[in-house]
């Protein structure tokens, strides 16, 4: 069978020690037996390593940050599309998802396919909405309570046992062992992310992650659970291993079928010492460790492209257990002329 030619544009080429998923996603696509892909990299910054990996990315264009406005970003992508047509677009950053979800129709009209969660799904899985989420979909989540005044802190002991987690609306999470520490984190977080600050039960146990793909109709197209074996100072997995745990897969199915999740996702789950599974966070995109899933037999990046193109296919149900990934860093040699080209012309 001859492979189908296709061009795929994606972001997240920052394959650093806090990596974006771009390069691992591309590796999955490159290994596809069905697609012969031309890879168009979309870079926000001029030193994202993927830009200079010419065997990984065929052509890179610089794009403006979504913080410049959805229109500005989308117009740039349409301008690229005009001279270098894009069949499928895979955004890989949380911060840009909002813009691409809003522009889904515009992109579709220009014949650029995406496969993204809906705005409603995206909003529903926000950290501050976790208790509501747990109730609605009948999954265990840590008990949590938003607070808006520092004088509420002294009463927390009525609802919580120490230690507990103090979390910002969008980012930041700290473990606190007493009210004084909560006050300190409260002040820091509220100054940075505003109110409310979320107080969350600390679940003792093992953290596990699942990468999964939902078809938007409630079906799981693929799912691979993993435990991090080595974690960097930034909290990123540097090594991990696939797990055999039916309960993790059942929980994933339950969430995907309940939400009718559309697109890639990463579940952060804590398995408590009582052996209960608590959902801690739901990330609305493929994680950077997705290549482990590819290596274990589920080419989820390829499956995402099929979903975007509306192709029918059988979902993945198996993966190899005990497959490991170990990340490594690698120095690419390039020349200032390449850097110049990208910086002045906006493409390479």
């Amino acid at each position: 069978m001859s492979k189908k030619k296709i061009s795929v544009a994606l972001t997240g080429l920052n394959n650093t020690d806090n990596p974006g998923p771009g390069v691992p996603v591309i590796r999955g696509i490159r290994e596809s037996k069905e697609f012969d892909a031309r890879i168009i990299g979309l870079a926000y910054e001029n030193l994202e390593p993927g830009i200079y990996m010419h065997n990984v990315v065929d052509k890179t264009y610089q794009v403006p940050y979504p913080s410049e406005g959805t229109d500005v970003l989308i117009n740039r992508i349409l301008e690229i599309h005009e001279k270098d047509p894009i069949d499928v677009l895979i955004p890989n950053f949380d911060a840009e998802l909002y813009a691409f979800m809003k522009a889904e129709e515009t992109l579709k009209k220009a014949n650029i396919s995406t496969f993204l969660p809906t705005l409603e799904q995206f909003e529903e899985r926000h950290k501050s909405e976790l208790p509501k989420f747990g109730e609605k979909y009948d999954v265990k989540v840590p008990f949590s309570k938003p607070i808006t005044r520092s004088d509420e802190i002294d009463n927390l002991k009525e609802d919580f046992d120490y230690p507990l987690m103090v979390k910002g609306k969008f980012y930041d999470a700290y473990l606190a062992y007493n009210a004084d520490q909560v006050k300190m984190h409260y002040n820091k977080i509220s100054a940075k992310w505003g109110l409310p600050v979320i107080i969350q039960e600390f679940i003792k146990g093992t953290e596990v992650n699942v990468v999964a793909l939902g078809d938007g109709h409630g079906n799981t197209v693929g799912a691979v659970p993993m435990r991090k074996q080595y974690i960097t100072e930034q909290g990123k997995a540097w090594a991990g291993i696939t797990l055999d745990d039916k309960r993790l897969l059942d929980l994933t199915d339950k969430i995907i079928s309940g939400m009718k999740w559309r697109g890639g996702m990463e579940l952060e789950i804590v398995k408590s010492f009582e052996n209960d599974l608590y959902v801690i966070e739901i990330n609305p995109r493929i994680p950077a460790w997705v290549y482990l899933a590819v290596g274990a037999g589920q080419n989820l990046p390829e499956a995402l492209i099929k979903l975007a193109l509306g192709q029918e296919f059988d979902p993945y149900t198996k993966y190899e257990i005990g497959k490991m990934f170990i990340r490594y860093s690698y120095d690419i040699i390039t020349d200032v002329r390449e850097f110049e080209k990208l910086s002045t012309l906006g493409e390479l």
Partner: peptide
Amino acid sequence: KLQAGMPSKFGMKP
């Protein structure tokens, strides 16, 4: 001066 960097707040300016 060209700010060589990783994704941060400032990207390509419109």
